[in-house]
Computed example of a mutant assay.
Amino acid sequence: MAKKLFDYQLDEAVDGFFLLKDSEVRIAKNGKKFLAINFQDTSGEISGKFWDASDQDVEHFQPGKVVHLKGKRENYQGNPQIKIQQMRLTQPGEPQDVQQFVEHAPMNTAAMEEELNQFVFEITEPNWNRIVRHLLAHFHDAFFSYPAAKKNHHAFAGGLAFHTLSILRLAKSVADEYPHVNRPLLYAGAILHDMGKTIEMSGPVSTTYTLAGNLVGHIVLIDEQIVKACQQLKIDDQAESVLILRHMILAHHGLMEYGSPVRPHVMEAEILHELDELDASIQMMQTSINHAEPGSFTERIFAMDGRNFYRPTHDDTKGELPSE
């Protein structure tokens, strides 16, 4: 059985087929081009540098291509890296289906959709319910297939819906513990908060940011869609209920320096921000812990201030995310 990326140990020779998730042209100190690459399979992704890249190499080794790679597993500044020795595109008869190299959410689409719909039924405020249903239908296919990010948390096919569902489960626990929390508002905000990523990103394979994603961002993009939905559904977009729902999305990053145009000023908006942070952080830590051996530290997690995390020796499980 072919080894996956994270089956290879430190200093072990790497020999296998992998997907080019990213391949960016950069200039080295000597003035020559090189490719900064992220290799991917269903176990995760590891970076590597292809030095002295020719114009033909740049043309051939594009994101979304499957390659045969020979090299060595190394560490660089606390993070795993592949030292590339040989690399070529696949040939006829060799693996070429990119889907077999893409990591997927631990639940299938049907299961996620069924559970999410149960939360929609509990959104009893008419305007919120109509807006949520309208936008879920409009972005359905992308919402259930896109990742929640290009890198970092839930960066796998179906990650956007899975991240949303995880927050909804957390929201249910919070609302059960604190009955005064507006449950329908919290659920509606949770479902919509990252839906703009279906416009911000290109898709689940070799994900990139679209022009709208780079110039506008998912928070503003989905706020625009809420206003459009109101126009189509004949809902007053200046009604208090709509403004509060828009505030949930606009404030969910918590701080303006993190991309929110406004800080949370409704209790449920603050709760959504905290739950979003919690779920993203746990998923990033768990992914890194899964790749570490007991008694060792994980790779450094850039999105968590470059910290790494220790996996105790008594932890004899991989701590995998739940399967479907």
Score class of each variant (00 low, 15 high):
64 G>C: 12
43 S>T: 14
65 K>Y: 01
75 N>H: 12
96 Q>L: 08
28 A>V: 10
13 A>C: 14
82 I>V: 13
99 Q>C: 08
26 R>N: 12
64 G>A: 10
86 Q>T: 13
88 R>L: 03
88 R>G: 00
68 H>I: 05
64 G>T: 03
44 G>H: 03
83 K>E: 12
18 F>I: 02
42 T>H: 09
72 K>H: 02
68 H>E: 00
80 P>Y: 05
81 Q>G: 02
87 M>E: 01
47 S>T: 13
15 D>A: 14
99 Q>R: 13
102 V>M: 06
77 Q>N: 14
95 P>S: 11
95 P>N: 07
36 A>R: 05
17 F>D: 06
73 R>V: 07
85 Q>P: 05
41 D>R: 05
101 F>N: 02
99 Q>D: 14
60 H>W: 14
11 D>K: 15
83 K>N: 09
79 N>V: 09
62 Q>F: 09
30 N>D: 15
41 D>K: 05
7 D>L: 13
92 P>I: 08
86 Q>G: 02
100 Q>G: 04
88 R>W: 08
66 V>P: 05
93 G>K: 03
12 E>N: 12
61 F>L: 11
54 S>P: 10
55 D>R: 04
101 F>L: 02
16 G>D: 10
95 P>E: 05
73 R>F: 01
40 Q>L: 12
102 V>C: 08
47 S>Q: 12
100 Q>R: 13
20 L>G: 01
76 Y>D: 07
15 D>I: 11
55 D>N: 09
84 I>H: 06
33 K>V: 02
87 M>G: 00
55 D>A: 08
17 F>I: 02
68 H>Q: 06
51 W>F: 15
18 F>E: 08
15 D>P: 06
70 K>V: 10
68 H>D: 03
33 K>D: 07
85 Q>W: 11
6 F>M: 12
19 L>C: 05
17 F>L: 04
14 V>A: 11
28 A>L: 05
57 D>V: 03
